[in-house]
Design a protein around this nucleic acid. Structure first.
Length: 585
RNA sequence: GCUCCCAUAGCUUAACGGAUAAAGCAACGGUCUUCUAAACCGUAGAGUGUUGGUUCGAUUCCAACUGGGAGCGCCA
């Protein structure tokens, strides 16, 4: 079913066609009023058309209002300010729409008319490195986008593009062979491999024989040496199990885990194809994609402009001079595979901001290669320490994701123990898991992903304001009402909305679909967070002003339905953020 | 040197070219015999880094500048 915004949009668009025909400016015409005192929705069509035609905007606004006349969706529109036309939804329409949504498991959100095959590429850890705070954003942002697109009816494939190949494995294999503490590997494979890597890497800096030995191990691995291949496979197996434990705590799942090594066989073919197509060429022994001059200099990712307007090449290397392949080659092979095997329409990469140049080059290369994919780089800011400097990867100061989750749960449990000493320890533990992990995820998802993130325990776990605990609590309060009632909301023929708080809550409930499309269109789950926070706020207002259980007749049944729909909307919205709810807290 | 990103209240942030720039935290003052006070209500607090430009209208678009961050040929 249509959201009120879509409803008003369609009506205004039709009116614009009638009044202005081909001269009409492009939509969208309708947006929510920033201040509900003015109305629910507004259009600035009159001002835009007045500008085009050189007419008085208020006169055109009057024409529009006359053409709209009476309607079942909204009251008679009003003209305000420089030429806004404001719409206020009819209470009857709101009640009917709310009622309809309360009987729909999808809460009125229609699946996409043209579902797309969307591959979402996120998390992408290295199998020889622990998951750390730097993986948090990619993992939970990607997971949320996957849930969002799936709910909107798209055919989503989530793919964890593991770092399971590359020069580092020569070092890791060498280090592993020289080390005897194999129990440590069994217990904590990734932690162990990371230690071995760092130790061996450091040793190689001062000892050329170690560097040479590591190189020899890599060559053997690449040549298919059985011992090294078996070792490498066991690294992957053990690491995957370890990763899965953390993903499971985060409630993150992948449809596929196709690491870089999966594409090894395709790499020579990719380079050959690009050479044959004249997209890539040889340079200083390597092979790279250069500018073909078709893009404006300013937008060409294959050149760098120098002072005075001169420019130099900024090639996209797809084969190193030693014959080896790199990140770019693998990414191109991956795109080719996703096109051929998944028949992907769209591929979304969720990585940090530093990779913008890489993806600009990758996307431009894909375009010249004519794979016909819609590619999106959903990038996010850095994780910073208290000193506002990026947390470094290998200096021992990195916060491991596992430790972060542990502490989130511990801190949540401490707070729960203070607030609810009456609960059993088991129950507090379960609550701490949902609330602690939820708080951690929400703190990240609720803000604009493009901004840098200052890592701060108190902020991550604050239980005040716009947080997961606040939203979960709103849900819990509603569940408490139904527990006390002893049943779920009754089936009713219609809803009666009289109080201002009831109408405001109902209107917000109808906007759920708008918040989802906005979040999906911009790849920004924080729009959904804002919506849920506002919904929870309006629910609390309703909760204060409109007693449910002690009311009677249609007022009571209507309020119960409102409560039920609010609970379902909160639960569904939180689930799309990857956050669970609880029945009590 | 070049490119990209960021700059809004004491702090963290929001604002889909539009109306008197919106929240949370912190501060101050209220509200639990009434569906869970992890809540609610209220007060105070900014004119959006600077200078110009486009526009009926700019936090939003454009240009230059200042400050911070990131990136810039064989790492991923």
């Amino acid at each position: 079913m249509k959201t009120p915004r879509q409803e008003v949009e369609a009506i205004v668009a039709a009116t614009a066609q009638t009044l202005y025909g081909a001269d009409v400016s492009a939509g969208p015409y309708v947006r929510p009023c920033p201040d509900t005192r003015h109305g629910d929705f507004q259009t600035n069509l009159a001002m835009v058309q007045a500008k085009k035609a050189g007419k008085n905007p208020r006169e055109l606004a009057q024409q529009i209002v006359d053409a709209l006349a009476e309607h079942s969706v909204f009251e008679k529109p009003e003209i305000a300010g420089p030429g806004f036309v404001n719409f206020r939804l009819k209470a009857g329409y709101c009640a009917a729409q709310t009622h309809a949504r309360s009987q729909d498991v999808r809460l009125g959100v229609e699946p996409a008319v043209q579902p797309l095959k969307v591959v979402i590429d996120y998390s992408g850890p290295n199998i020889a490195k622990e998951l750390h705070v730097g993986h948090l954003r990619s993992t939970i942002l990607g997971d949320s986008l996957a849930r969002l697109f799936r709910f909107l009816g798209h055919n989503v494939i989530s793919d964890n593009h593991l770092g399971d190949w590359g020069t580092q494995f020569g070092i890791v294999i060498l280090g592993y062979k020289r080390d005897t503490n194999k129990e440590r590997f069994e217990q904590d494979p990734i932690g162990y491999l990371e230690e071995v890597y760092v130790r061996t890497q450091n040793a190689s800096k001062t000892d050329d024989t170690i560097r040479e030995a590591a190189r020899a191990e890599l060559v053997k691995l690449q040549a298919g040496d059985p011992e090294n291949v078996a070792l490498w496979k066991s690294f992957i197996d053990h690491s995957l199990q370890s990763l899965d434990r953390t993903y499971s705590r985060l409630d993150v799942k992948f449809d596929y885990t196709l690491g870089e090594s999966f594409y090894n066989d395709r790499l020579p073919g990719v380079v050959k194809a690009l050479l044959d197509a004249g997209i890539a060429r040889e340079t200083e022994g390597a092979i790279a994609v250069f500018s073909d001059g078709t893009l404006p200099q300013k937008d060409d990712p294959f050149i760098v402009t120098e002072k005075g307007g001169a420019f130099r090449d900024n090639p996209f290397l797809i084969r190193k001079s030693d014959g080896g392949f790199n990140y770019a080659t693998t990414d191109l092979a991956t795109l080719q595979y996703r096109k051929e095997h998944f028949h992907a329409d769209k591929v979304i990469y969720v990585t940090d901001s530093r990779q913008q140049m890489h993806f600009a080059q990758l996307f431009a290369t894909e375009k010249r290669w004519n794979l016909g994919l819609n590619l999106q780089h959903v990038w996010f800011g850095a994780i910073l320490g208290a000193d506002k400097k990026p947390l470094k990867t290998r200096d021992g100061g990195t916060v491991k994701l596992r430790a972060l989750l542990d502490e989130a749960q511990e801190r949540a449990e401490k707070i729960i123990t203070e607030k609810r000493p009456d609960l059993e320890a088991d129950k507090r533990n379960d609550l701490a898991q949902v609330v602690g992990i939820g708080a951690l995820k929400y703190a990240d998802l609720a803000q604009n992903r493009n901004l840098d993130y200052v890592f701060n325990w108190d902020k991550l776990l604050a239980f005040d304001g716009n947080t997961a605990p606040y939203l979960i609590n709103a849900y819990v309060r509603i569940r408490a009402i139904f527990r006390k009632l002893g049943s779920e909301a009754p089936q009713v023929e219609r809803l009666v909305l009289a109080e201002e708080a009831e109408i405001a809550l109902a209107k917000k409930l109808l906007d759920f679909g708008d918040s989802l499309t906005l979040a999906a269109d911009e790849y920004r789950p924080h729009y959904l967070c804002v919506y849920l926070f506002e919904l929870a706020g309006l629910f609390h207002k309703f909760y204060e002003h409109c007693p449910v259980l002690i009311s009677e007749g249609e007022t009571k049944t209507s309020r119960l339905v409102l409560c039920a729909l609010t609970a379902q909307t909160l639960k569904t919205g939180l689930a799309l953020l990857g956050i669970k709810t609880v029945e009590q807290m």
